[in-house]
């Protein structure tokens, strides 16, 4: 198996923010075309700031750790700041991912972008 960093293992062992937010303001669901893994990200937004973020993931260790990390990274951020979080930032925060597992963090970036997009669309509708 790939060698994961201690940070990845920490987030895999005790993932933060697992679950759904029933009254979420935005939801992003993405699939990874390479491996078929799936991630769902829920956000709660108040006055342009992400107050809460939760996830559900069907995926490898790196996908679970990336999900956990991205929810930690976005909490308390403005939407503008959150939109700028790339998979590279997730990888850095995890102290790196093995090369074959870098794409797993893309799942986290895309789920986040989708959740923000979903939030914005919902704002337009009202």
């Amino acid at each position: 198996m790939e060698q994961y960093s201690e940070k990845v293992m920490e987030h895999f062992r005790n993932p933060k923010n697992v679950g759904e937010i029933p009254d979420a303001d935005g939801v992003g669901r993405v699939g990874n075309p390479t491996c078929g893994d799936i991630m769902e990200l829920y956000i709660k937004v108040d006055k342009g700031i992400i107050k809460d973020a939760r996830f559900k993931t069907f995926g490898c260790g790196a996908a679970i750790a990336s999900s956990s990390m991205v929810t930690e990274l976005v909490k308390g951020k403005t939407l503008e700041e959150a939109e700028k979080i790339s998979n590279k930032a997730v990888i850095e925060a995890l102290d790196g991912l093995p090369p074959v597992k870098r794409h797993c963090s893309v799942l986290a970036e895309e789920a986040l972008k989708k959740a923000i997009e979903d939030y914005k669309n919902r704002q337009k509708d009202v």
Partner: peptide, 14 residues
């Protein structure tokens, strides 16, 4: 069903 193999293996390994 509904869970991914690598995460099972990592948890069993722990």
């Amino acid at each position: 069903r509904d869970v991914e193999g690598e995460s099972i293996i990592m948890m069993l390994d722990m």
